[in-house]
């Protein structure tokens, strides 16, 4: 995963508001809080080009790139894991997050890794389709690796995209009848129509 030196993420002001880290009781306030948190997570992940989060990792290890997201050390407040999960569930209903199911088989794994869709697979698929049309790659066969890491796609928005996520995007295209997959698991080939 490429990690170019990114400028520090400009946190919203709620981030330094201590009650922001406490689950609110009032339903209206809670909804606003969930909305603000999901917005914060999405913009943070977009800023740092994070596609999936490991919840246990982000909450515990300070070395994780997403650590500051749920831990505000300057005001000594942190979000509890259970509330993070609730926020993820909230985002899931919006289609902005999804539990990573393929990565592990255990229940624990399932509750830990999460896709953060600051762009949904459909949106990614749209970008890929547009790129294919613009670069004249219609009818060509490309591997997924080529799409995300290859020289040809460098500069496009999905360059450096998580491969698994790209596979999801490609599958969206397949469903639409705009592409066809071929080859094995390791190096999946895609033919665009």
């Amino acid at each position: 995963m490429p990690t170019p030196p990114t400028p520090p993420f400009p946190f919203p002001k709620e981030y330094s508001f201590p009650p922001f880290f406490t689950p609110q009781i009032n339903l209206a306030t809670r909804h606003a809080q969930l909305t603000k948190w999901s917005s914060l997570i999405l913009s943070y992940c977009r800023h740092h080009a994070i596609y999936r989060l490991s919840l246990s990792d982000t909450t515990t290890s300070p070395s994780s790139p997403a650590y500051p997201l749920f831990n505000n050390d300057s005001i000594n407040r942190r979000l509890s894991l259970s509330y993070i999960k609730e926020i993820i569930d909230f985002m899931r209903r919006d289609g902005r997050a999804e539990w990573v199911s393929g990565s592990g088989s255990g229940e624990q794994q399932q509750g830990d890794l999460v896709w953060v869709y600051w762009r949904t697979p459909e949106e990614w698929a749209g970008l890929v389709e547009k790129w294919v049309e613009e670069t004249g790659n219609k009818g060509q066969v490309m591997t997924v690796y080529e799409l995300v890491e290859g020289e040809g796609s460098r500069g496009s928005e999905f360059w450096g995209l998580d491969q698994e996520l790209m596979v999801k995007a490609v599958q969206v295209l397949v469903k639409k009848g705009k592409a066809q997959t071929m080859g094995g698991e390791e190096n999946l080939g895609v033919k665009f129509f």
Partner: peptide
């Protein structure tokens, strides 16, 4: 928190 501005992503 609920300042009425943030309405979804």
């Amino acid at each position: 928190i609920d300042t009425g501005e943030g309405k979804g992503y």
